[in-house]
Structure formats: structure tokens, C-alpha cells
């Protein structure tokens, strides 16, 4: 550090010595440092002047060194032992100032210490941020419904137990188009199959006895249908 008002600008010792003066006054410099300060003081008026202030300070504080401003007391030591006993018995009743304040207390202190303009600015900022987040959440598109998109492989035709069902076996050479034509003509749909034996279950839209019989007759008359039977004994051939 270079000090201003240096009356000994050409003396390289000056900056070092002026910083050592407080410890020259309290007598804690080593012998080499002390000799250096002594030598310099002989030629530096500024440092001699600085020394006056430090000596005055030392005089002021030396009164404190010798006057017993504070004395230990048996009661004080007994209190410390009491604190230790409490600590060691697991009931830490140490001085309250030693305890770490809780998060709520810390937050409360922080709130108290925050200057008002900063506090209001931060509050407004928080409110604006909250509003923005809410806006984003509200405007987000709804999640896709579970059955909005399906692949052909996972289509499950509705099965209605009250509707008549038929077991049907197609000829080996029947085409998919012919099957579709058959189903459309009977207003039916395949709800199960083929089984190991090539049997499909066909559910018909018509629930009346007459219509069921009519459908069975029409299906049986088709050259590429090998077998038609009502499921569960419903066949009224």
C-alpha cells in the first residue's frame, strides 16, 4: 500500500514502517523490525507524527488493559457447567443466541431487513410470474383422449350379450371382400375367431327370431360358407 502525504518519498522504508507503527507502539515487533522503525523515525517527520496518534491510542487503551472491566465469576463458570450438563444430557439449553434460527425465523428476519421498495418490487415480480405460469397452464391443449387414436390391430368390436351370435366357418378360398359383403348384407360383425378349427363368431344386429333364422338361411346358402350354427343352442334350424 502506498500512503499519501508521504514526506519521505525517496525512502523505500516509509510505506513499510508506517504500517508497522501500531505494533511498534504495542511492543510486539521482532528486533529487526523494531530496529528498522527506529532508524526510519529518526529521519521521517510524518511517521513521528503518526506515532503520536498511536501512542495516544495506546495510552487510552492501556487504561483498559489494567482496569478490570470484566471479571470471571464462580457463578459464571457454574452457569457454563450447567449449560454443558444440559448439552450432555441431550437437552441442549444453550444460550439462545447460539441456536440456529428456524427457516421461518430466517425468512421473517429477511423480510424485515428487505427495504420496502425492493420488497414491493419482488412481490409484484412474483405475482407477474405466477400469472404467467397460470396462463400457460390454462392455454395448454387438453391431453388426448384415450380412444382418440387406435390401430387396426387393437380394435375391439363391442360385444353385446343380448344380440344373437352365430358360429360360422368360411371356405378356404373366400376372399376378404366376400366376407365383408356377407357381413354387410346381414348387418353383422365378427366378434371372435378364428379358432383353431377356423370358426368365427358372428354377431347379428337383428334380435328377432325370424330375422335370425332368415340370416342363417341366407348364410348357409352362400357357396363359400361351410357351416353356420347358432351359439349357445340358439339355432332354430
Amino acid at each position: 500500500m502506498t500512503h499519501s502525504n508521504n514526506l519521505e518519498p525517496n525512502n523505500p522504508d516509509h510505506d513499510v514502517v508506517i504500517e508497522l507503527l501500531p505494533w511498534y507502539v504495542n511492543g510486539t515487533l521482532n528486533s529487526a523490525e523494531q530496529a528498522r522503525v527506529d532508524r526510519h523515525l529518526g529521519s521521517c517527520a510524518e511517521c513521528r507524527q503518526e506515532l503520536l496518534l498511536y501512542r495516544q491510542l495506546d495510552r487510552q487503551r492501556s487504561a483498559g488493559r489494567h482496569a478490570a472491566d470484566w471479571q470471571p465469576s464462580p457463578a459464571g463458570f457454574a452457569n457454563i457447567l450447567k449449560g454443558i450438563d444440559a448439552l450432555e444430557s441431550g437437552n441442549d439449553t444453550r444460550l439462545s443466541s447460539e441456536k440456529t434460527p428456524g427457516r421461518l425465523a430466517t425468512f421473517s428476519t429477511w423480510l424485515k431487513e428487505t427495504p420496502r421498495p425492493v420488497f414491493w418490487f419482488m412481490s409484484l415480480e412474483t405475482l407477474a410470474l405466477t400469472a404467467l405460469v397460470l396462463l400457460v397452464i390454462v392455454r395448454l391443449p387438453p391431453p388426448p383422449e384415450e380412444h382418440l387414436f387406435q390401430t387396426l390391430s387393437n380394435e375391439r368390436p363391442p360385444v353385446n350379450a343380448s344380440l344373437p351370435r352365430l358360429s360360422i366357418v368360411f371356405a378356404e378360398d373366400i376372399t376378404e371382400r366376400e366376407i365383408r359383403g356377407l357381413l354387410q348384407s346381414q348387418h353383422g360383425q365378427l366378434v371372435q375367431g378364428p379358432s383353431m378349427l377356423g370358426v368365427y363368431t358372428l354377431q347379428l344386429a337383428a334380435a328377432s327370431e325370424h330375422k335370425l333364422q332368415q340370416a342363417m338361411n341366407q348364410l348357409r346358402s352362400h357357396p363359400k360358407v361351410k357351416l353356420v350354427e347358432a351359439v349357445g343352442g340358439e339355432g332354430r334350424q
Binding site: P22, W23, V25, N26, G27, R61, G64
Partner: peptide, 12 residues
């Protein structure tokens, strides 16, 4: 620093 120097008489 002042008190440690002048009252307690510590080295720097």
C-alpha cells in the same frame, strides 16, 4: 484490529 493491537497487545 485496534483493540487486538492496543488492548490485547497482539502481534499483527
Amino acid at each position: 484490529v485496534v483493540e487486538l493491537t492496543m488492548t490485547v497487545q497482539c502481534t499483527y
